[in-house]
Amino acid sequence: MKIGVVGCGGRMGRMIVSTIATTEGCEIAGGTEPPLSPLLGQDVGAQAGLAPAGLVVGDDAQALFRAADVVVDFTAPDATALHARLAAEMSVPLVAGTTGLTADEQKAVEDAARSVAIVQAANMSVGINLLLGLTEETAAKFGDDYDIEILEMHHRHKVDAPSGTALALGRAAAKGRGVELDAVAQRVRDGHTGPRRAGDIGFATMRGGDVAGEHTVVFATEASRIEIVHRAISRAVFAGGALRAALWLDGKPPGLYSMRDVLGLG
């Protein structure tokens, strides 16, 4: 499968290019960067730290879509909206990993997905998406007898808490229970908290060292407890997940798909 990488010189773009080189069934179709990028004209493989691929970085996304079976996009929100339109026009499926889209940009992606298959996910890691699916399912299966707590740890430089992924896990748990997270989230505990309220979803945050990101979802009831854990090691997980999505898209009918669809988690 020939994979085009728009934004191939970005941090994720380079990761995608090098993961393509080591993924069975994948072949690089080419890469683009915006006009004026200093990378234009360089070799797509070499700029990612690999052996030359014999393809130069261009700025013509249309030409890239023409040469590719599927395109992977970790760029900027406005560029992603444009790439979604191109994907629809040229009937080439798209894996869209860019985050922070405005409502208009998101609508462009959704419109495009009416005529071409698009996988969109804010987090492409296979493991995190497994966790999201299993958390929702487990929360739906177990009632309020089971207390749900979400524990996360990240490196000392992270400025927000709980992490976006911890909150997404909380939303998945709340969804499984058929409630809104905001109504049940217990984001901090300090001082005389009183007993735990049934149905609450608790968060605990740790910061330190260079931890790439660890999340634990605990389901605790009397006399037993289940935990589901994810530990990120490197950003390459996102590239691995994006390529898994790219391979999965082969032959899929138009539609906007999630990583849960890709992983068959219903």
């Binding site: 037993s224 935990e227 854990v229 530990r231």
Partner: peptide, 20 residues
């Protein structure tokens, strides 16, 4: 423990009362 190159997924179970 499911240990991949770039991420690890774990599930765990603990019990404290054999009555279950």
């Amino acid at each position: 423990i499911f240990a991949g190159d770039d991420e690890i997924v774990e599930v765990a179970y603990r019990s404290t009362d054999p009555a279950i």
